[in-house]
Structures are given as C-alpha cells and as structure tokens.
Design a protein around this nucleic acid. Structure first.
Lengths: 187, 187, 187, 187
DNA sequence: AATGAATGAGCTTTCATTCAT
DNA sequence: AATGAATGAAAGCTCATTCAT
C-alpha cells in the first residue's frame, strides 16, 4: 500500500492522487486502510517519507559497499537515480519532495520527517566516505560536498521533469566533484 | 488572480489549493473566473508558470544590470531568492516546480511551458554573462555553470523547505562558482 | 439562432443544450441574445416551438398541393419526416416534443404553444383533405384519422430513436389509413 | 432513489432535474449516491429505464392475466396509462422517453436499453395474445398491431401533455384495433 | 481484526442571466 | 441597438473519513 502510494505521489504529487486510486492500485480493501493508518492520508504520507528515506539509505549503503572512493559511489548513486527516472517514463521524482512541496502549515510532522531523511542521507554518505578516504578528506569538506550533492539530485530530478531527459540528474555527479574540489582547495 | 494562485500554489502545491480559496484570496467572484480562463484551473496553472517565468526573467535582468561580473549577479540572484523565501515564512517555493511536480501524463502544455521558462532563464543568464565577461569565459562553460545553478536553486528551494532555513538556497552561489571554475580548468 | 437552437434541442432536449452552445453554433454574439429574447431561454423555446409549428404547417401545404388524395399527402408527409430523421443521423426528433417533455409546471405558455401547433396541423390537414376528397369523407372521420396520424408521427419519432431506423415513423402512414378506414366503416 | 428519479425525469426530463433534487426527494444523502451508482447520473438513467421497462412488463402481465382477449388487455393497459397520467396531474410521461429524447451521441447504452425495453414489451404482448387467441390471429399481424400500439401509447403520452387530457392516450386502443383489423383483412 | 456501506463537505465547472459601456 | 464582461447559483462529481457489522 505504501509502495503504491509512493509510486503515485512521485508522479502526480500528494494531493494529486486520491485515496481511492491508491487502494485500487494496491489491491487493499477499502475499509481496512484506516485500520493500519488511523490518522488517515497524513499518516500514509509520513510512512511514504520514512519508507523512501530508508530505501535511499539502503541504496547509499549499496553504492558505497562496492565503491573505491566517494566519487565512485556518487557516480553510481547518480546513475541509479537517473536510471530509475528513465524507467518510470521520466515521470517519477523524489518521494519526499512530492509530499514536502504540498505542505500545509500544520504538517510539522511531515516536514520534520523529510528533514530527518535528508540529514540521515548526508550523514551516511559522509561517514561512508570518511571511512573510504581514510583521512585524505576532511569531514567538513565532505559534509559540504554531499549537501551540494543532495541539492543537485533534488534539483536535477525537478528540471529533468521539464526536459524529459536524465541530463539534469547526471549533473549532480559533477556538482559533487567540483564542490569537493573547491572545498579541498580552500585549506 | 494569477498572483494569488501563484502564492498559494507555491506554498501548498497545485492540487493542494482549491479554486474557491484562490478566488476568495484574490477577491474575484467565483463565476467570472471562467470568463478569463475558459479552460479552467489548467489554464490558470499555465498562466502561473508563464507569469513566474517572466517574473524571474525580469529579476535576472535586474541583477545583471548592476553587476560587475557573472558571479556578482549570481550572488544577488541567490540572495534574492533566499530573502523572498524567508519573507514567505520559509513556505513558498518555485512557482513552476509547484505545478510541474503534480503533472498528469496528459499535461504536455504545462511541461513544455516549464521547460521554456527554465531554458529562457539559462539563455538570459548566459547572454548577460557573456556580455559582462567580454570573452574571458566561453559560452559553453557558462551554459554548464548556469545549468548547475538552476538545478541548485531548484534543489535548494526544496531542501530549504525541510530545514526551514535559507542555507540550502545560498549554496546555489557556491555551486555555480565551483562548476564554472571546474569548467574553466578543463581547457 | 432559432434554427440552431431547434437543431440542438431536437437532438438533445431543451435542458440538454446550453445557451453558450446555441450561440456559438449560430455565430450570434453572446451579449445580443437578450436583446432579441428579453425573457431568455424560455422565450427562445417558445420561438422554436412556433417556428417549428409554422415550418410543419408549410410542409403540410406542400405535401397536399401536389397530392391526389389525403392518403397520398399523408404518405409524402411521413416519408418527409422519415427522410429528415435519417439525414440527421437518426438523432433529431420533433422540435415541439423536445421542449414539451421538459416542462416546468409554470411553463403554461410553452404547453399552450405546443397545443396550438398540434391543433393547427390537424386543422390544416383536415381542411386540405376535405377539399381534396370533395365530401367523400366526413370531417369527423378525417379529424379522428389525423389525430391518430399526429400521435403516430410523434410516437414513431420516439421509437425510431430507440431502433435507429425509420420503420416506426413509416408506420404513421398505415395507422392513418387503418384509422380512417375504421372510421368510415363506422357509419 | 430510482423511483424518485423516475418521477422527476418523467415530469421534467433527464437534464431538467438535478441530482440534488432527486436525492432530497428520495431522502438519500448526497455522498452515498455514488456508492450505489459509481457511474453517476448516467448510470441512474439506465437504472430508471430498466426499472421502467420491468414495471411495464409486469403491468403487461397483469392486464393480460385477467383478459379474455388481446383487445381487452389493450383496453386495460391503455386505461391504466391514462389513469396514471391523470393522477400525476397530466405531467408524467413515459420514463424511457423522458431520457431517450435527451441522448448524447455517445449514450449508446441508454439507447440500447430503451430499445430492449420496447422490444420486450412487444414480445410479451404478442406472446400473451397468441396464447389467448389460440391461433385465430397470426403472430405477424399481432406483431404489427402491437408495434402500432407502442407507437400510439408513446405518441399519445406526448400529445396528452399538450392537451392536458387523456384523450390522445386513449386513442392507442383504437389504433391497435384498427391496425389489427387491417392486418387480418390482408390475408 | 477487518470491511463494504455510508457520508457531507468540497471539488471543478457550467448555467442562464445581468450589467456597464 | 448592441455587446463582451461579469455574476453567483447550481450543476455533477470526488474527496478523505466514519460507521455498522
């Protein structure tokens, strides 16, 4: 059910998709939804964000596991996002963004979950990189570079919706590399 | 009416805002809306995108008019976006993104208008910069750097929603600078 | 404008067609409608009924002009209705019926106009026939037969909508003939 | 709900009656309507037609059950329709006609349902009559006569709206009789 | 624990009409 | 005399949610 919701939200946004469609898509019976999500659609949104956060965290682990260095991992990550975007028919963006951009002032829980996911990703990528690069790069520089990378992935995902190509997403790799180089040159 | 719609879409997304609220916010009576927008909310969305595109284009002209060089203009632009975001209570993102991310497969007109806006911004920024830098920088390098800048602004706008700070937006400036430097070092 | 309205009403009913479509179909400017029909759509309905009534009256004159006897005229009339129905793609019924069946209790004017049209048709057909048949048939018998004929035309027009053939309309001829024969046998 | 809709459609036509009125008349709450009729008003129209078709079919059974011969049944049927029309304040016509005359080109389902109802009525009346008349009348003659009868009932129902009397409806009986007599004389 | 039925507020849109020019 | 602009009531429909079982 969460997966079905995520797929739909990513393509048409949180308010752009009705509960009925989510349920029919997931095959779940209509009435049982509020059994699992007593708070309704809001709670589902939260679950989609947290699930998306975990999914990307796992993907981060994967790309770093077989990587020789940070840039290698970044390259694989970027290609993975681009590939998935292409596979979706150039239609599915970031699950977190798809909900975050339709926030109601009161949705503090959603905002905070989104922020947690973003911060967790950065922390994981920094930690993995530190361990790979063995002190050759400062934590500070990596933190900056991965923040730029996150921004570039999110921005690229958006611009790619407009161009219907993966090129904007692919730029995230270069943005990471140039930001890291610039930071290293700063010492 | 377009302005009212833009403000609301930017905060809560296209489908997150009802026509009734837009009209009550803009003071326009309910019935007269379809006189000006016979195609309804879709057409309003298009108008918001085109209006937003023009608004940013003008803002680009402004920041370049009083700029000594490209980076100076980029700095002013970035600060302007960050300031506006802060003024909105950290709630209003890019008008184009707010609609683009809730596309229905059929909304080709919206996608194309969004793409036009993005491309126009890049072209304008490149042209202004070429004239400012007087041959010191290649068109190719500028094009790349401004594409990175656009991505960074859009991505920053999103991440800033999560952090409730302007920091992610401000990174766009650095991303532009490091991308340009990297491109120039490529020769 | 009246003709455009009649065409549309006949196919989709009085309330099934909006003023906007009528005006766009007739090419008339939107605002000038209430100049000619201060009472609005109701008045247009009345005009359609009266116009339809006159049109059929003229057609009655035509079919009787070149007819040797009443049945001959009835045959031509029936074929004419059937032909027009076929030409319309089996979609357009009687203009008067199309409005009469959607009466609001208050629409006494419409009902009375419809009744006038029907009565006028019968009177005309009876008078023509009396003059053709030269006393061989009583006014009373003709009146009865033409009332049956009117009913058969109207009923046939309806059933023909269901069958998408002209057969039900064509039966009006036979119904006239058998009713007249029966009446004549009554003496 | 179907009954309430039928009453209102019969008096003012399909498009002449809003969903709100049907629901308030039937006591059903607005929202639950689409639970039972997911396709909306179109589906309700179909239900009204089918229900009307069944209702008349039952009435046909009734009038034939206690009839000595076909004409007797036809007489009762005609009187029944006339009585109901009078009881409704000379306002309610055939439920099927009330929808059939406002067809949109696409409403093939409605047209087909209407045609089915009409054909079923004729078949039933023919079958009942054959069994009553025990071979004294051919199926072919009965078929013709009942087709004329159907047309006459439908046409009479319409003209009766104009006259505000039952006389046009009552003629259906005579039209049946004279058509049958004519057919029998044909042998 | 699980669910189809039921719900009314709200959705976008169309309606016939009136108004200002 | 003629008209595009303006209007709000009402249209059909979908929404997220609650209820009875």
């Amino acid at each position: 059910m969460i997966d079905a919701a995520a797929e739909l939200f990513r393509a048409r946004g949180y308010h752009g998709v009705g509960l009925a469609e989510i349920l029919s898509e997931s095959g779940a019976p209509k009435g049982s939804f509020y059994h699992h999500f007593p708070q309704g659609k809001d709670e589902l949104a939260l679950a989609v964000i947290e699930n998306g956060g975990r999914f990307v965290s796992k993907f981060i682990n994967e790309v770093f596991e077989s990587a020789r260095n940070a840039e290698d991992a970044v390259s694989r990550f970027t290609s993975g996002v681009a590939y998935a975007f292409k596979e979706s028919g150039f239609s599915q963006g970031c699950p977190i963004t798809s909900i975050l951009l339709e926030l109601t002032p009161k949705d503090e829980a959603v905002r905070s979950a989104a922020n947690n996911a973003f911060e967790t990703w950065i922390e994981k990528m920094v930690a993995h990189s530190l361990s790979l690069e063995q002190g050759k790069v400062s934590r500070q520089a990596l933190d900056k570079a991965f923040r730029a990378f996150l921004i570039a992935i999110e921005g690229g995902w958006i611009v790619a919706r407009a161009t219907q190509t993966v090129a904007p997403i692919m730029m995230a790799h270069e943005i990471f590399a140039s930001t890291l180089k610039m930071e290293l040159g700063r010492r």
